[in-house]
């Protein structure tokens, strides 16, 4: 039996495979295809201070080996989450992590404070990297000072594992990673989507109602892998790799690059059972390479 468990600060995962926020709903959408007790954790979709309808349709465009989305953080707000959603997901047999977003530092702070009271939520992921909202979101994640300001404010009120999700739409992701580490982040997840756009040439119009949106899927994997590699060289806190992971081989490449865990996002849309195959594939890799613990793969890239 191979040891697949990993640790993100004080958060223990039975294996390094998690699902990415916004691609796995609240988990129940996948119950016909996924045994949640076989996942390291799920990151449920972004929760904000109040109800948001998101952006107008159309808010998705297919692209080569990927897709653009401009959902815009549609959710019913943190109070509704606590009242109506938390009771339904709190007993899931896996780590349930809440992605927290907002338009102001105060909104992030207030949502985090409320989630802190939820006994069965062991961690939050601070979303300072959503490219699809006019205010807040990525605006906080693209400058080191504002990324630090949000992290600092939330760290004061949030006592459990604090993960900060970084935007790739920056000049130096390493600088921002170090900045939020200094403010007390327990872990960093990267990357969120890359800002992109698509045009319908027949209509001479943008495909998305918001003109630009966030690119995800295998198309962004090399960029994500490079950023995970760079960041994990420079920070001491554990890194969670995200970006186009669609199979066990992709997942292992992120671990080798330095990620302690990974999140599967867009691939869930193509194969809702893909996470189960990735967990099995990682176990098979350990068997084939006679490695006892998945932790031995973390950062084990041979660059000699």
């Amino acid at each position: 039996m191979k040891d697949l468990s990993v640790k993100l600060h004080s958060l223990e995962l039975r294996n390094p495979v998690m699902t990415a926020s916004g691609t796995f709903g609240y988990g129940w959408e996948y119950e016909d295809f996924v045994d949640l007790s076989k996942l390291g954790g799920i990151v449920v979709k972004a929760t904000t201070g109040s109800h948001r309808e998101g952006n107008p349709y159309p808010r998705m465009a297919e692209t080569p080996h990927g897709m653009l989305n401009a959902i815009g953080l549609q959710n019913k707000g943190v109070d509704y989450f606590i009242k109506a959603i938390y009771p339904a997901i709190s007993d899931f047999p896996t780590n349930v992590i809440v992605n927290v977003s907002g338009s102001t530092v105060e909104e992030y702070e207030s949502v985090a404070e409320k989630i802190n009271e939820l006994e069965k939520i062991p961690a939050i992921e601070l979303n300072i990297s959503c490219p699809n909202v006019k205010e807040g979101g990525m605006a906080f994640g693209t400058s080191c000072a504002s990324a630090q300001a949000v992290t600092r404010a939330v760290r004061k009120v949030y006592k459990k594992t604090l993960i900060v999700k970084l935007s790739p739409n920056v000049t130096s992701i390493v600088e921002i990673a170090k900045g939020v580490e200094d403010e007390g982040a327990d872990s960093i997840s990267l990357i969120n989507t890359l800002l992109g756009m698509a045009i319908d040439v027949e209509k001479r119009k943008p495909v998305l109602s918001t003109i630009t949106g966030g690119l995800s899927g295998p198309a962004i994997k090399p960029v994500a892998l490079r950023m995970v590699w760079q960041v994990s060289q420079e920070v001491k806190i554990p890194v969670i790799g995200i970006g186009g992971i669609s199979n066990a081989s992709d997942a292992i490449s992120f671990l080798l690059a330095g990620a302690s865990a990974i999140q599967v996002g867009t691939a869930n849309f193509i194969d809702p059972s893909v996470t189960m195959k990735i967990v099995a594939g990682i176990e098979d890799y350990l068997e084939r390479h006679r490695i006892d613990s998945v932790k031995d793969l973390v950062g084990a890239l041979d660059v000699s």
Binding site: G22, G54, P58, R59, M60, N69, I71
Partner: peptide
Amino acid sequence: NTMACGIGACLSCV
């Protein structure tokens, strides 16, 4: 409507 997942997770097809 155009959609990605078909199972209520991506919220593209609203």
